[in-house]
Nucleic acid binder design. Structure first.
Length: 636
RNA sequence: GCCCAUAUAGCUCAGUCGGCAGAGCACUUCCUUGGUAAGGAAGAGGUCAACGGUUCGAAUCCGUUUAUGGGCUCCA
């Protein structure tokens, strides 16, 4: 008797051994059709897996994350099968399921072209229609190595040779194609109904740039055509909010080949948003007890030798330039400069905490291939600050920084936070006691604010522990902007100190922190978060006064000026175009409010507001509208 | 940096086999004075990314450079 326990606790008894598929059939015909694989005593297995004794069994369908993963993984095998049929000399390597799809890396003598991808996808569809059974086979490890070697599949042979000798290796066969795989897989290729190859890219064998370069074919796969289509539409939606596209459409910023990669030019409309961000940031910092600093963008290389950047940060720095025969370095960070200010006079224990902030522009050498819009650039402005304090102030300072961080991020429309706490790595500077104290302070602060956090044990920098805060945007993507890091290294290197109560020299604690990270990158995130529809307080143009005929030009100008006097960013569109034309244009520019003025409004001294979605509210006085807009700009 | 792709008017993009450089939008001027997402006409606008090569002839073919895009972590 075999007793099968199902996830809901019910037990079914069977007289003789049976397959997982038969268990599914015994539960119901719907499940039998939907089942892709099973889980037996916690182990994922194929539907053909034979149960010879009592077990806990559950079934995997496409509705679950693991079911999707199986479909994607099986589709990657289908891809490999099609490639081997069309290009027999290609060697297969690995092909896992990834978020939203799968990839497979091949070694092939020439690059795959887009036409090749089309041909491969077509062949995949044919193979899927044939509903080829996917069968699992076991082979002895050494036999498997010989088997793949004989087929010229050296990468596979290499993978297997790392599996301990004597272990049985599982292979999956569909048609003439055999691949080394742990499984499980769908029962036959007919289960693969909705997939699409997306791109081909270079990737290194085992992700190591010193190894052979392979060709990675990316694809996406879903349980049915509907899900595939909805994914593809979602991709298009994400593309519509791409900050590079919106940056152009809304005339916010540009990058120039003439200037070089990764260098950002802020246009007037982008600069307006940046100014709002900066003004808000400065106000928040002044209220939180920070002083503002301004420091140079370049300094004698010797300073970077002292700070240690020349050793541990060299590959991210631009090459030095000669000035009066002395090497000078463009700054990749602001911290050494703040330390020079610290060291410009003697400090007492009574001076602390000292909180120094700077919107500091830095330059970092990023490899040409990683540059990406505003997200990865070579010159950017950090919203940097350094807090110098005594050991007994660490905990309260960290908490204050965390609160400032959360308040700031919330103001920009981010509500969900995830925190990473990175602790002491193997190789590090500083005493055990101070690492312990700092790490506890960070942990206490996170817990005091009741934040979800993940502890990355040993993941800290060599100079101190840190917490990173991640935000989630409107479409669910996570971004890490904020970081709070203790630094036990720089104070040592620059020999910074203060005079303690006892008259002796003491080393202060230094905390680096950035809330938005880089203004460029944060701006890019904001553009995508709001899909270009900035809330009123950030919008570069908050309202446009639109005339119906040029009879209202004087009134429109007066309205604009009165609103500007209230501190609002307002333009007047006096062009002799039809209202519909002007409305369309400003709507496409995503201006939050349009104020239509015709003869009636002029006569009555009113404006007729229309929001970005096309809703109208009826005429109201200029002052009433200004009050409403100002209120909208202050709340969030 | 490496692999693949791309680069044509301000923007989005056509351009066949190597044979006179194109469209729509935007821009300028004129007409139009109109009530909530595109009124009409005319005009101007180009070193086809840069440099080199092949050719009688290159936007088109080849090479180099630059920039842009997709990747280069997700354990058979």
């Amino acid at each position: 008797m075999i007793a099968i326990t199902l996830p809901d606790g019910t037990v079914k008894d069977f007289a003789q051994p049976l397959s997982v598929a038969e268990v599914a059939a015994a539960i119901g015909p719907g499940l039998a059709r939907a089942a892709l694989a099973g889980i037996v005593n916690g182990q994922a297995v194929d539907l053909t897996y034979r149960l010879t004794e009592s077990a806990q069994v559950s079934l995997i369908t496409a509705a679950s994350e693991s079911g999707l993963k199986i479909i994607r993984h099986s589709t990657s095998h289908l891809l490999a099968q099609a490639v081997k049929e069309l290009f027999p000399s290609a060697q297969v390597t690995i092909g896992p399921a990834v978020d939203n799809g799968f990839y497979y890396d091949f070694a092939f003598e020439r690059p795959f072209t887009p036409e090749d991808l089309q041909a491969i996808e077509k062949r995949m569809q044919e193979l899927a229609q044939q509903a080829l059974p996917v069968r699992r086979e076991l082979m002895d490890r050494d036999a498997a190595i010989d088997f793949f070697r004989a087929q010229g599949e050296h990468f596979k042979a290499e993978i297997i040779s790392e599996i301990p000798a004597g272990e049985a290796i599982s292979l999956y066969r569909q048609g003439d194609f055999i691949d080394l795989c742990r499984g499980p897989h769908v029962p036959d290729t007919g289960y693969l109904k909705a997939f699409k190859l997306l791109s081909v890219a270079g990737a290194y064998w085992r992700g190591d740039a010193r190894n052979q370069q392979l060709q990675r074919v990316y694809g996406t796969a879903w349980p049915d055509k509907k899900a595939l289509d909805s994914y593809l539409t979602q991709m298009e939606e994400a593309e519509k909010r791409d900050h590079r596209r919106l940056g152009k459409e809304l005339d916010l910023f540009s990058l120039h080949e003439e200037a070089g990669g990764g260098l950002v030019f802020w246009h007037p409309m982008g600069a307006r948003v940046r100014q709002v961000i900066e003004n808000y940031w400065k106000k928040m910092h002044q209220e939180a007890g920070y002083e503002m600093l301004y420091t140079p963008h370049i300094a004698n290389l010797e300073l970077w030798r002292t700070s240690g950047h020349l050793d541990f940060y060299r590959e991210s720095m631009f090459g030095a330039m000669l000035v009066d025969e002395q090497p000078y370095q463009l700054r990749p960070m602001n911290c050494p400069f703040h330390i020079l200010i610290y060291n410009s006079h003697l400090h007492s224990h009574r001076d602390f905490p000292m909180r120094w902030a700077e919107l500091g522009t830095v330059y970092r050498y990023e490899m040409s291939g990683v540059l990406h819009g505003l997200f990865r650039v070579r010159g950017f402005t950090q919203d940097d600050a350094h807090v110098f304090c005594r050991e007994d102030q660490i905990e309260s300072e960290i908490l204050a920084i965390l609160d400032l961080t959360l308040a700031t991020l919330k103001r920009f429309g981010f509500q969900e936070f995830e925190v990473n706490l990175s602790t002491r790595p193997g190789k590090s500077v500083g005493s055990d006691a101070i690492w312990e104290k700092a790490t506890v302070a960070l942990r206490h602060a996170i817990m005091a604010r009741d934040l979800k956090f993940i502890e990355d044990v040993g993941g800290g920098a060599f100079y101190g522990p840190k917490i990173d805060v991640k935000i989630t945007d409107t479409i669910g993507r996570k971004w890490q902007c904020s970081t709070i890091q203790l630094d036990f290294n720089l104070p040592e290197r620059f020999d910074i100190y203060y005079i303690g109560e006892d008259g002796g020299r003491k080393r202060p604690i230094m905390i680096h922190r950035a809330l938005l990270g880089s203004l460029e990158r944060f701006f890019g995130i904001l553009i995508e978060h709001y899909a270009g529809y900035f809330p009123v307080w950030l919008a570069p143009v908050q309202a446009v006064v639109v005339t119906i005929t040029d009879e209202q030009n004087d009134w429109a100008t007066e309205v604009r000026d009165r609103l500007r006097q209230r501190g609002l960013r307002v333009e007047a569109d006096l062009r002799s175009q039809k209202v519909g034309y002007k409305i369309r244009e400003h709507t496409l520019k995503k201006v939050p409010w349009l104020l239509i003025v015709g003869d009636q409004e002029k006569r009555e001294g009113t404006v007729n507001p229309r929001d970005c979605a096309g809703k109208t509210y009826g005429a109201e006085s200029v002052e009433a509208f200004a009050d409403r807009l100002l209120e909208e700009a202050t709340k969030h």
